[in-house]
Design a protein around this nucleic acid. Structure first.
Length: 259
DNA sequence: ATGCCGGGTACGACCCGA
C-alpha cells in the first residue's frame, strides 16, 4: 500500500496538477493540506471520477485537510481534541481495513507558528501538546498508525539547505524541536530518516529562486507507529512535481508499506 | 533575510504562508 502526503496550497488552484499526479501515481491513499476550501465547494466529483473516496475537513480561505482513498473509509474523525475554542481545520483521520487489521491514517497541517513574538507561536506549541495526547491515545491501540502531513518542523540541520538561517524561526528553534522529539520519544518513527541518511527536501519557497538554488527544507513527514514502521518498505519524495507548471511550494511524499 | 512569490477574498489591497 502506498500512502502519500501533499500540501497542495489551494485545492482549486491545484486541481489540474492534483488530478494529473493522481492519475500518474495512483497512490492508495493521498492526504492533503492547505486545501483552503470549505467542504461544500471542495471539488470532490473530479477526484471521485478517478476512483477515490473523498473526506474533507475545511474552512474558508485558510488551512483545510483532506483524505483521498481508493479504499473505502471505515471511520472518519475531524479536528484535534483538547480545545473547544480552536476552530482551525488542521486534522482529519481515516480508518481503513487491510487484510485482517485496521490502518489508521491521520493528515495534519501543523501550525506554522511565525512570528514567534505573536500569539501564533504559543498556539503552535499548545497544538503540539494536544497532538502528543492524541498520539499517545493512538499508540495504545497497538495498530498501524500513520501520522503524516505538513509538520512545519525542520527536524535536524541536514533537513535545511541553510540551517543557520532558519535558527530562531518557529520551524526550527528549541521549543519546537523539543515538542517534535517528544513525538519520536512516544514511539513514532520518522519514515524518511528510517530509510536514508541523505539530504532530502519537501518544500522550496516560491521566492528568491529557492527551487533553482535547491534551497529547500524538509518539513513534510510521515511518522509511524511501531506496527506501521515494521511494514515500511520505502519512502519516495516526488521532487519532480516541484518543477511542474503551477506547482505547490511543497511536493508529495510517499511511503510504501507491505500491507 | 523577509513576504521579492503566490493563493484567497473579492475587485483594491490585505491577510496569510515558511
Amino acid at each position: 500500500m502506498r500512502i502519500a502526503t501533499w500540501n497542495i496550497n489551494g485545492i482549486k488552484a491545484r486541481l489540474d496538477i492534483l488530478l494529473t499526479w493522481l492519475s500518474q501515481e495512483k497512490p492508495d491513499i493521498a492526504v492533503l493540506q492547505e486545501t483552503k476550501s470549505v467542504d461544500e465547494s471542495f471539488p470532490r466529483s473530479e477526484i471521485e471520477a478517478l476512483g477515490y473516496n473523498v473526506e474533507t475537513h475545511g474552512q474558508k480561505s485558510w488551512n483545510g485537510v483532506a483524505i483521498l482513498s481508493l479504499l473505502p473509509f471505515d471511520k472518519v474523525t475531524r479536528g484535534l481534541p483538547g480545545d473547544d475554542r480552536d476552530e482551525q481545520a488542521r486534522l482529519i483521520e481515516g480508518v481503513f481495513s487491510v487484510e485482517s487489521s485496521a490502518v489508521r491514517v491521520c493528515s495534519i497541517y501543523l501550525p506554522n507558528g511565525n512570528p514567534v513574538d505573536s500569539e501564533k507561536f504559543p498556539y503552535k506549541l499548545a497544538w503540539m501538546r494536544r497532538l502528543e495526547a492524541y498520539v499517545a491515545d493512538r499508540l495504545l491501540l497497538e495498530e498501524p498508525f500513520v501520522l503524516l502531513g505538513d509538520f512545519n518542523l525542520i527536524p535536524a540541520p541536514i533537513d535545511a539547505h541553510d540551517s543557520k538561517a532558519w535558527w530562531g524561526n518557529a520551524l526550527y528553534r528549541p521549543e519546537s524541536l523539543e515538542r517534535f522529539r517528544t513525538l519520536t520519544n512516544l514511539g513514532l518513527t520518522d519514515a524518511l530518516r528510517a530509510t536514508t541518511s541523505k539530504t532530502a527536501y519537501t518544500f522550496w519557497d516560491f521566492q528568491a529562486g529557492a527551487w533553482r538554488r535547491n534551497a529547500g527544507i524538509r518539513i513534510d513527514h510521515l511518522m509511524l507507529s511501531p506496527q506501521a514502521a515494521d511494514r515500511l518498505d520505502d519512502v519516495r519524495i516526488h521532487k519532480d512535481v516541484r518543477s511542474w507548471d503551477k506547482s505547490s511550494d511543497h511536493v508529495p511524499v510517499e511511503g510504501k508499506f507491505s500491507f
